[in-house]
Amino acid sequence: MAFWDSLIRVLIGSILVFFGVEKGGVFIIALIVGLILILTGITTFCPLYKIAGISSKGEEASA
Rank of each mutant, 00 (worst) to 15 (best):
G20M: 10
G24P: 06
L35E: 05
I28Q: 11
S62Y: 00
V21N: 06
G13N: 05
E60G: 00
I42D: 02
I42V: 15
C46Q: 03
T44I: 01
L37R: 06
E22Q: 13
V21L: 13
G25T: 12
A61G: 03
E59T: 05
A61N: 05
S14I: 09
I54M: 08
S14C: 13
I38H: 06
E22V: 13
S14V: 10
G25H: 14
A52L: 15
C46F: 03
A30G: 14
G25L: 10
I42R: 02
A30F: 12
K50E: 13
L35M: 12
V26P: 12
I42F: 12
V17L: 11
I51Q: 07
V33Q: 03
I32N: 02
F45I: 15
I51D: 07
F27R: 07
F27N: 09
F18V: 00
G34Y: 03
E22L: 01
V17N: 00
A30Q: 01
S62C: 00
E59N: 00
F18K: 03
G13C: 05
P47C: 01
L37S: 07
I29P: 10
S56F: 15
K57I: 15
I54P: 00
F45T: 12
C46Y: 01
K57L: 15
E60T: 08
G53W: 06
G24L: 07
A61V: 10
G20L: 08
C46S: 04
K50C: 04
V33R: 06
T43A: 12
A61E: 05
S62Q: 05
I36T: 11
T43C: 13
T44M: 11
I38R: 07
T40G: 02
G20R: 01
I28T: 15
I29C: 10
G20D: 11
E22Y: 10
I36W: 07
F27H: 09
I12E: 04
G34L: 05
S62H: 07
G41A: 10
I15K: 01
K57H: 07
P47K: 03
T43K: 10
L48Y: 03
F45M: 09
L48I: 13
F19S: 09
